[in-house]
Nucleic acid binder design. Structure first.
Lengths: 336, 336
DNA sequence: CCTCAGGATGTTAGCGTTAACATTCTTGCG
DNA sequence: CGCAAGAATGTTAACGCTAACATCCTGAGG
C-alpha cells in the first residue's frame, strides 16, 4: 500500500512555489491589494498545482468567525431533526456555512457535553431541535453565541423559537373536512401530556365550533402516537355515527384506515380521514393515500437558520414564532 | 433587550484573573507540568468563573488534529445516513470527536463543494455514505485525509468500504423460511439495476439451491422499492402455488401482506412473508409484524468510524468489507 | 537626471494555545 | 550559611493566515 497521503499544502508552500512572499500570495488568492497580473497568475497556478485549500482554522482564529453552526438535536431517529437540518443547510446554501451535528439522544448530560464541545469549537451559533413541540429548558443563559430553537420551543420567552402552528394546522384540516360536507367528526390523537396533542385538539375544537359542530363523542380520544392505537380507536369510533375522523398523526391515521377497511368501511365514501405530519413514507402509501397536514419542517429549518444568521449579525429577535402548516389533499377525504 | 453576550473567555483572561502566566494556567488546566496545588485551584476557579472553554481552533492549529470528521451523505431522507451517523457518533463516543454533516443530495457538484469546505476545515477524516449499495466513484485520490465508505462502496478497491452483506442476509432469510417448513418460495424485489436487488436475489437463489428447491416462477420478480409494487406483486404471486415470499424490502413486504390479507390469505398460516431492512416504523406495524433482515447499519457506522480512526492513526486497511446482517423473527413467518 | 506618486512586493504582529526552554523560588543537606 | 536539586512559574516560538505597515520599484513630469 503506497498510500502517499500528501499533507495539506500551506500558503507558504504556494508562495515558495510561486516565488513570492506569503503576503503577496495571500493577496493574489483573495483578490486584495495590488498584485501584478502575471504574479497573480503564477500564484493561482501554484495553488492549483498543490490543490491548496486555505486553512479555515487559521482564518477563523483571526476573524473570530468559524462559519459553522451547531445543530443540537434530541430525536435520534431524525424524524424532525433531518428536515430542519436540510432546511438549515439550504438557508446557508452556497454561503459556506457548515453544520456540526450532535445528537443528545434525549439525555441532558450528553446535551451539556455536546454543548461544551460545540462552544469550544467556536461555532457561530446554535440550532436546538426538540423531540416534541413541548417547551424545553433553555440553554441560552449567558452563552457567547446566539441560539434558536426549532420544533421544540425554549421555556424562556427571551429566546427565539420556531414551532409549527399546530392549532392552526388542525383547524385547517377540520375546516377542510367541513368543506367536504362532513358533519360528524371524531378526533383520535396522541397522549394528553403532549403539547402537540393538546394543540391539535384545540385547533380541531375551534374549527368545529366555528362551523357550529360538536366533536363526536364529546372529547378527543387520547392514546399514543402509533398505528396500533389508530386501529384500536377505529373499533371504538366505528360504533359511533361518524363521517370523518381527524387523526393527530399519520401513524394513527394509517392504523385507522387499515382497520376501517378491514371492517368494510369505504374511505373516503363512508368515512373521510385526515392525518397530521405528512410523513411521506406513510401518508403516500395508505389506501387511499392520506390527506394530511404538512408541518413544513424544512421551511421551518430554513427560517430558523435565517434568523440565526440575523442573530449572529446582532439583529436579534425573540419569542415563539408559530410557523404555518400546509394542507396536503390526497384521496382519503375526497370522493372520486 | 439586554442580550449581553459575553465574548468567550480566553486563556489570558483566566491567567490574569488567577494572577499567573498563561503557561501556568495552561499547565494547571491540562494537568501537565508542575503546578502548586493552591495555584491550580485558583486557576481552576478562575476558569470556572469565566466558563472558560479552550479554543479548539487554536489547539487544532498546533496539533494538526481537529478531532472532527466529515460525514458526506447523498441520501437526504436520512434513511441510511442517520443510523450510520449514530453509529459513528457512538464509536467516537466520549472521545470528543465531532461530526460535520454535509448532504450532497445526490448532486456530485455539491458533493465536490462540500468536500472542499470539509478539507478547508481540516477534518481528520471522512465517511462517505452512499444512497444505495451500488459502487460509487472514489473521491479518495490524493486526499490529505483518510476516507471510509459506508453503505455504498467505492469503485476503487484500494479504498475502504463497509457494505451490508446482502447475499448472506437474503440467504439467512430464506434458510429461515426453509427451516419453518416452507418449500414453495417466491421472491419479490426492487429494480434489476440495483445492486441490492441483485445481491438479495443471489442470496435467495443460493439458499434455495442448498435446500434443493427452486424459485417459484423461476425468476425473481423485479419491480420497484415500494409498497404499491408489493401489492401488485401479491396479485400475481397469489395465483401461483406459494407458501412463502421473500421480499426485497420491508416496504414491498408491507404491501404484499396488506394485499394478501385483503384476498383472505392468512399470514403466516397460508403464506409466510419475510422482509428486508428492518425499518421499524414499517416492520413492527404490519399485521402480523414482519420477520425481516436487519442490515445493522448502526453497527456498520460504528465499525466504519472505528476503521476511520485506525486509518487516521496510520493503520490503513482496504477493500470492501461485508458486514453481517441479522435475522429478526416476528410473527409473519411463525405459526402461532 | 531627479523626484515622487503610487503600484508591487515584503516584513511582521497577532489570533489562542501548547511546549520547549529559561528563570525564579524552595528546601534539604553538607 | 551556601548551594544544588528540583519544584514552581514565566518567556517565547510556533501553528497558518490576514492586515497593517514598510520597503522597493517603475515611470511620468519637471
Amino acid at each position: 500500500m503506497v498510500s502517499q497521503r500528501p499533507r495539506a499544502a500551506t500558503l507558504t508552500d504556494v508562495a515558495t512555489l510561486a516565488g513570492v512572499s506569503i503576503a503577496t500570495a495571500s493577496k493574489a488568492l483573495n483578490g486584495r491589494g495590488q498584485v501584478k497580473d502575471e504574479t497573480r497568475r503564477r500564484v493561482l497556478q501554484a495553488a492549483e498545482e498543490l490543490s491548496f485549500q486555505p486553512n479555515a482554522l487559521a482564518r477563523s482564529l483571526i476573524s473570530g468567525q468559524t462559519k459553522t453552526v451547531g445543530l443540537l438535536t434530541s430525536d435520534s431517529v431524525g424524524r424532525f431533526g433531518i428536515p430542519v437540518l436540510l432546511g438549515a443547510e439550504d438557508a446557508f446554501g452556497a454561503g459556506e456555512m457548515a453544520v456540526m451535528l450532535c445528537d443528545a439522544r434525549g439525555d441532558s448530560i450528553r446535551e451539556q457535553h455536546h454543548l461544551r464541545t460545540l462552544l469550544a469549537r467556536r461555532v457561530d451559533g446554535l440550532i436546538v431541535v426538540g423531540e416534541s413541540t413541548d417547551p424545553r429548558p433553555s440553554i441560552s443563559r449567558n452563552l457567547p453565541v446566539p441560539v434558536v430553537y426549532a420544533y421544540g420551543p425554549s421555556e424562556d420567552p427571551d429566546d427565539v423559537s420556531f414551532v409549527p402552528d399546530d392549532v392552526a394546522g388542525a383547524r385547517t384540516a377540520v375546516q377542510h373536512l367541513v368543506t367536504m360536507g362532513r358533519r360528524r367528526i371524531a378526533h383520535v390523537t396522541g397522549p394528553t401530556h403532549y403539547r402537540a396533542a393538546q394543540d391539535r385538539a384545540e385547533g380541531t375544537r375551534a374549527a368545529l365550533a366555528e362551523a357550529g359542530l360538536e366533536l363526536v363523542g364529546g372529547e378527543p380520544m387520547f392514546g399514543v402516537w402509533s398505528q396500533r392505537w389508530g386501529r384500536q380507536a377505529a373499533e371504538i369510533v366505528l360504533k359511533l355515527d361518524v363521517d370523518a375522523v381527524m387523526c393527530g398523526s399519520d401513524q394513527i391515521a394509517a392504523g385507522f384506515i387499515e382497520a376501517a377497511r378491514d371492517r368494510g368501511k369505504r374511505i373516503p365514501d363512508d368515512i373521510a380521514v385526515v392525518g397530521y405530519d405528512n410523513w411521506e413514507v406513510l401518508a403516500a402509501e395508505t389506501r387511499p393515500p392520506l390527506t394530511t397536514i404538512d408541518t413544513n419542517l424544512e421551511r421551518l429549518g430554513r427560517t430558523a437558520a435565517q434568523h440565526l444568521f440575523a442573530a449572529i449579525d446582532g439583529k436579534a429577535t425573540s419569542g415563539v414564532h408559530l410557523m404555518p402548516c400546509r394542507l396536503v389533499i390526497r384521496e382519503s377525504t375526497v370522493r372520486a
